[in-house]
């Protein structure tokens, strides 16, 4: 009796799923060759279509060198850096809902995040540790590229773009450092910007432009907030696009050694 009902339910579910899966809506969403499409079969042609008929074609070619797929070759460090950037964007957008970039509100908001916002503490922690991990993974990615000699022709310029990306990563991390507006933020940024003041000739001007004042003030928060959530992400996305595009145009992954 019970088995009969289960079978019937299963049958119904399968039939409904079949209709949904084969419907015009599903067909219109999934392009030919999608592994989620009804009746997908694992053929060489479909394996090509998965990439070719997909927005992923902007990132990946249809085929890659066999040694490049081995985890031990790249350690996926570039991919990890990129993915951490995406995670930081997501968690950062969440944090923006609860944060006002003023001297009065900033610290209170960050404190409230840990006590009165669901998952607030977790997301803030993810954002902070994720940022440290990203700086680390970008450094390691650069080292991996160096040790493989992967900056050699025709990839010279992509290495230059990579160094710019490292600089932008550091700037993103450093501008975010100030935003909690606690003692750690204030004085770390003071020390950091004092170093910028040692730039020869126009050191004071550089420092003034960075801080919006001769020293760290409430105005600096707004300035660094805009840089952190808008300006630098905008610039880094452009450079990342060039970086990824050049990886493919310069012949895909380097090597084998």
């Amino acid at each position: 009796m019970a088995n009969g009902i289960v079978d019937k339910v299963k049958e119904q579910a399968t039939s409904i799923w079949g209709k949904v899966h084969g419907s015009q809506v599903a067909e219109s969403i999934l392009r030919p060759g999608s592994p989620f499409k009804k009746g997908y079969s694992d053929t060489p042609r479909n394996r090509s279509y998965v990439i070719m008929n997909n927005v992923l074609y902007h990132l990946h070619p249809v085929k890659v060198k066999r040694h490049g797929v081995r985890l031990s070759y790249t350690l996926c460090l570039g991919g990890i850096s990129f993915f951490l950037f995406i995670l930081l964007t997501i968690t950062g957008i969440f944090l923006m809902f609860y944060y006002a970039p003023t001297a009065e509100a900033a610290y209170v908001d960050v404190e409230a995040l840990s006590t009165s916002v669901a998952f607030g503490s977790l997301v803030r922690n993810m954002h902070r540790w994720g940022a440290h991990l990203m700086v680390l993974s970008v450094f390691l990615h650069m080292s991996r590229v160096f040790y493989h000699g992967a900056y050699k022709p025709p990839r010279e310029f992509n290495w230059v773009v990579g160094v710019i990306l490292l600089l932008l990563t550091l700037l993103l991390s450093f501008t975010g450092y100030l935003l909690p507006w606690d003692q750690l933020a204030l004085w770390a940024v003071t020390v950091g910007t004092n170093m910028a003041g040692f730039v020869p000739v126009f050191g004071d001007q550089v420092k003034f432009a960075l801080l919006g004042s001769v020293e760290v003030t409430g105005d600096t928060i707004l300035r660094w907030y805009v840089l952190h959530v808008l300006a630098f992400p905008f610039i880094i996305v452009i450079f990342m696009a060039v970086h990824f595009w050049r990886v493919r145009k310069d012949g895909g992954i380097s090597g084998p050694l």
Binding site: R47, V50, V62, K63, K65, C76, G79, I80, F83
Partner: peptide, 21 residues
């Protein structure tokens, strides 16, 4: 050159790394 299909070989690996991170 010795090449493999990006799907599934590379994509699966990337997805695993993504989940791991």
């Amino acid at each position: 050159t010795d090449k493999v299909s990006t799907w599934p070989h590379l994509m699966i690996m990337e997805f695993a790394v993504l989940l791991g991170v």
